[in-house]
Every structure is written in structure tokens, then in C-alpha cells.
């Protein structure tokens, strides 16, 4: 089963544990500035929104790369940057409509989410399940379940039953 990161901003408290976990996994130290996932704080609205690469099928970054440094990991679906090939031209950072590929001036390469090889550290670190790693074909399942629970149809008056 192909899995995908599923982000529910309503559950995010803005603690940045995901950024800490991501930077540790990728850089070997705690450094939110080098995280591939970012939490945005819309202060005046009281909203926190984690944001990272959604691993597009026809990935703009991958198609834009002139040296084929971005390739698909067939097992995870992640678009991964091959550091040995990346020349730091940043064309992918321009091509990505979502801004989730970024240049790292310390290495001269670009960095982006690679799903940690299929076991994303951000999802494991999130204390509120705002970031989960779920069936890529059913990222809407939780929301569907919530709305399903609110529908009256089928309510026989015997009380609420757990849905699976």
C-alpha cells in the first residue's frame, strides 16, 4: 500500500516537534532552519499549518531538473534528490508551485521531503496526530468518518456505535 503524509492543521499546536525530528533525521542535529517541513503560524487567526512536499505524481521539480537529480522512489512514491547529481541550479525551486523544494546554502544542494524512506519522522514526532502517514488512496478517510458520524440516516435510536 502506498502511503502519504496527511496533515490536519486543526490539530496542530505549533510546537515544532516535527521540524526538530526532520532536522535531526536529515542533518543529525536539532535545527528547525534545516527542516523539510515547516509550521506556519497565522497569528491573528490563531491557526498553525504544517506544510511540506505532497509528492506530486507528475512532479514539477522532477521534470524541471536538467541533470535528472530528482527521481521517484518506487517503494514510497517520494521524489528524492540525489546529492551526487544535484548541481544547485535551483530550477526545481522555481518549478515547484508550492515552494516545498528549497536550496541549502551550506551544502550547495536542494533539500525536500523524501518521506524518510517510508517512515516519516515528523509524523512519529507529532504529539497531536496533526501529521499522520496513511493510505495514500484514503487520506480523506478521517474527514469522511467525521462527517458520516454527523449524518442522521441509519440512526435507529439505539445509541452511537463506533465506526471502523
Amino acid at each position: 500500500m502506498l502511503k502519504a503524509l496527511n496533515i490536519d492543521p486543526g490539530k496542530c499546536t505549533g510546537c515544532l516537534q516535527c521540524e526538530l525530528a526532520c532536522s535531526y533525521e536529515n542533518e543529525g542535529l536539532f535545527n528547525p532552519a534545516k527542516s523539510r517541513i515547516k509550521v506556519f503560524n497565522f497569528h491573528d487567526q490563531g491557526r498553525f499549518v504544517p506544510y511540506t512536499c505532497t509528492q506530486c505524481d507528475e512532479a514539477w521539480c522532477m521534470h524541471a531538473c536538467p541533470v535528472d537529480a530528482i527521481t521517484v522512489n518506487r517503494a514510497t512514491g517520494a521524489k528524492e534528490v540525489n546529492d551526487n547529481l544535484c548541481v544547485g541550479c535551483k530550477v526545481c525551486t522555481i518549478a515547484c508551485p508550492f515552494g516545498t523544494v528549497n536550496y541549502n546554502s551550506a551544502t550547495g544542494k536542494v533539500i525536500k521531503c523524501d518521506l524518510c524512506g517510508g517512515d516519516p519522522e515528523c509524523a512519529k514526532a507529532c504529539p497531536t496526530d496533526a501529521i499522520t502517514y496513511v493510505d495514500a488512496d484514503w487520506t480523506g478517510l478521517d474527514k469522511m468518518r467525521q462527517w458520516a458520524a454527523k449524518t442522521d440516516a441509519g440512526n435507529t435510536g439505539t445509541g452511537q456505535q463506533a465506526a471502523h
Partner: peptide, 16 residues
């Protein structure tokens, strides 16, 4: 509006 966390906090007692 909601609760909020300081850096690295898994409690998140802050009020918005």
C-alpha cells in the same frame, strides 16, 4: 480559539 504550544512543548497549555 484554540490551544497553542511554545517551542517543543507537547503539553500546549497556551490560550489563543
Amino acid at each position: 480559539v484554540r490551544n497553542a504550544a511554545c517551542f517543543g512543548c507537547t503539553i500546549a497549555c497556551g490560550r489563543v
